[in-house]
């Protein structure tokens, strides 16, 4: 009984270790990335001068428009987070407010909520990208496109744009500011979707490592009836459990998820991924023929299939490997016991 309790707590502590390793990465990946602007004085000579911000700083969600500024937390809430600001007035294409010198959120990779921790984005080198805009109804005329943006395909409610110098990280708000005709659409970056799919190998490995840990623990639980006979195997499994944690940390260091495609709150919000994947890949299906957009759509679809296959096959392979390892361990242990018991 006591050994079983010990084993149960070993599993609990191992799971806590897994959570520790995972949570570090989850926090890093889930932090919304924001581009900020500093409020500037409109008329420095005027004592009643107001600070001016671009109108685009207002972030829209289902509860209305919000203006956020960066603040520093302490204690458990140490780090940079956003707080909502009120008391501003809209004048033309600008926001006027009293506070000065603070950093206000201009663009964000994900919708924000007051008190949410954020990370000030470091802009990477711009790279060629494709943007897929999915409108709720028929796609409107886009009008004159800004330099570096070209229309590739337009079918029904879907528009595919080629962008020479796409922003890195991709932010939907930034794309909509560049091309106001996209205001009503959900805009996806092909580069971000490809980046998400590239993580399939790591996803499969992580899944496999996790199940390997559970299988080793299950084996130890099975051997518990005779701990003295199998103490070597149990000690080896304990060491393997520690090694699996280290392996998990190593695999996680290769994970790099695009912030624009992650859910707002929980990384485990599978419904969000399903909805995004469905919208993105269903939109791609409207393109047909031999045009660049259609070919790109087929390539992306294939990439998705390949990623899913790779992820599941790696995980299954690891599970099989762990079962084989246990069989090997069992055989070696039995052989040793047999040799010792020989007269």
């Amino acid at each position: 009984m006591k050994t079983k309790i010990l084993l149960l707590f070993i599993l609990l502590f191992w799971l806590l270790g897994v959570c520790t390793v995972l949570s570090g990465k989850i926090e890093e990946e889930m932090l919304p990335q924001v581009v900020t602007v500093q409020a500037g004085a409109q008329q420095l000579s005027d004592p009643n001068s107001k600070m001016k911000l671009p109108l685009g700083c207002l972030q829209a969600d289902e509860n209305g428009m919000h203006l956020y500024r960066l603040a520093e937390g302490s204690g458990w809430e140490a780090g940079t987070y956003v707080e909502e600001v009120g008391g501003y007035t809209v004048e033309g294409d600008a926001l006027l407010l009293d506070a000065a010198g603070e950093q206000y959120v201009r663009y964000t990779s994900k919708p924000l909520a007051p008190g949410q921790p954020v990370e000030a984005a470091e802009e990477g080198a711009p790279a060629p990208d494709r943007w897929l805009a999915v409108f709720p109804g028929e796609a409107p005329e886009l009008g004159p496109l800004p330099p570096g943006v070209a229309l590739e395909e337009k079918q029904g409610n879907v528009v595919l744009l080629a962008v020479d110098l796409g922003s890195s990280p991709f932010m939907e708000g930034q794309a909509k500011t560049l091309l106001p005709a996209l205001a009503e659409a959900n805009v996806y970056s092909f580069a971000d979707m490809a980046r998400l799919l590239e993580n399939a190998v790591c996803g499969g490995l992580l899944l496999g490592v996790f199940f390997m840990g559970l299988i080793f623990w299950g084996y130890a639980w099975h051997q518990i009836k005779d701990p003295k006979k199998h103490w070597g195997c149990m000690a080896a499994n304990l060491l393997l459990g520690g090694a699996l944690l280290a392996a998990m940390a190593l695999i996680l260091s290769f994970v790099d998820l695009p912030s624009s495609l992650l859910p707002q709150q929980y990384i485990t919000d599978w419904g969000h991924y399903r909805q995004e994947f469905q919208e993105f890949f269903t939109a791609l299906e409207v393109f047909s023929g031999e045009t660049g957009g259609a070919l790109e759509a087929v390539a992306m679809g294939n990439r998705r299939g390949y990623a899913e296959y790779l992820c599941s096959s790696i995980a299954v392979f690891q599970v099989c490997l762990s079962v084989l390892l246990l069989f090997g361990e069992e055989a070696i242990s039995d052989r040793r016991i047999h040799e010792h018991s020989r007269p």
Partner: peptide, 16 residues
């Protein structure tokens, strides 16, 4: 539970 065990490592790191 998600917030303590998965969303941020600060609780678990302090625990360890």
């Amino acid at each position: 539970y998600y917030r303590v065990f998965l969303a941020s490592p600060q609780y678990l790191l302090r625990f360890w």
